[in-house]
């Protein structure tokens, strides 16, 4: 398993990277952490003509808080997200999610931007972006543009990024005081892509959801913000309400079958996660009694 021959360029700046991408179009691929790109190349699933290595671009690194906004550079590695005090303070969901991403060796190399741009529907970080209401910052030939994470993911390995653009950062609203989060996923082994996963961010006041964002992943061609969450907001959640939300969730999800799980198993597990999530966020063990949805 050896990659076919390719040209390699190490970008010296974002502008340089964009110029290279503009010149080579679809034949170029951006190399960030390389944790998905290199295996795909070695398996000859893809054979790019040019690799644009953005690894040296210090401007794309780092986590910074400015006012109500937490900005994370695209080259920030998973391991850095896991250790960052800013992430722990302002987006603890992300730190919890990263612990589920693969294994330390991969987390030491893999980057946030790489994960988002790769857009694996079973990946953790894209779902977190939806739950956290993130804005994706994109640089392109005509300057910088911003878009909601919800609009960024368009399908299996597909995003709103064009071949000439580079994902440079994400911006998250810092977590509010009354906010809570939940992350869990079901996988056959720790570190595997999830069979079903859920990243959730909520605001709970007096035992009632004031806001609830439920981002499911591995249950469709992209991470999905569950509309069923709306049924749980603004009122005391009863088993009956949870059951309705669960049924609604099941209807709105469009999971795919693969070797790990059938469509019905994915729907079932998504409902199990919903029950566990709501129970945990509201601190209501009664909502998860008997477990199965």
């Amino acid at each position: 398993m050896k990659a076919s021959a390719f040209a390699y360029a190490r970008a010296t700046s974002v502008a340089d990277a964009l110029a290279l991408l503009a010149a080579h179009g679809d034949g170029a691929k951006v190399l960030s952490g390389g944790q998905s790109l290199m295996p795909a190349m070695n398996l000859r699933l893809i054979s790019p003509e040019l690799i644009v290595d953005i690894g040296g671009l210090a401007e794309l690194r780092g986590v910074a808080v400015s006012g109500d906004v937490l900005k994370i550079g695209a080259l920030t590695r998973h391991a850095e997200l896991l250790r960052s005090p800013e992430i722990a303070a302002h987006a603890p969901l992300l730190a919890e999610a990263v612990a589920h991403v693969a294994h330390p060796a991969i987390r030491n190399r893999g980057t946030l931007g790489g994960s988002l741009a790769h857009a694996d529907p079973a990946a953790e970080l894209p779902a977190c972006m939806l739950a956290l209401n993130a804005t994706v910052v994109i640089s392109g030939p005509s300057g910088e543009r911003r878009m909601a994470a919800e609009d960024f993911f368009t399908g299996i390995y597909e995003t709103a990024l064009s071949a000439q653009e580079l994902l440079v950062a994400v911006e998250l609203p810092v977590a509010r005081k009354s906010s809570g989060y939940f992350f869990d996923e079901f996988a056959r082994r720790h570190g595997d892509y999830a069979i079903v996963g859920l990243a959730a961010q909520a605001i709970v006041k007096d035992g009632i959801f004031a806001d609830l964002r439920l981002a499911f992943f591995a249950v469709g061609d992209r991470p999905t913000l569950a509309k069923a969450a709306a049924r749980l907001v603004g009122a005391v959640v009863t088993p009956a309400i949870l059951s309705e939300a669960s049924t609604a969730l099941s209807k709105e999800l469009d999971p795919q079958q693969d070797q790990q799980a059938s469509v019905s198993m994915r729907r079932h597990l998504a409902k199990v996660l919903l029950g566990r999530c709501v129970s945990a966020l509201l601190d209501r063990p009664d909502l998860n009694a008997g477990g199965s949805a």
Binding site: F186, R188, I195, Q260, A261, S262, S264, M265, H268, S292
Partner: peptide
């Protein structure tokens, strides 16, 4: 004994 096998045997899916 995969989750799929066990959930199927339990009639959960």
């Amino acid at each position: 004994l995969t989750p799929q096998v066990i959930l199927t045997a339990l009639g959960r899916i």
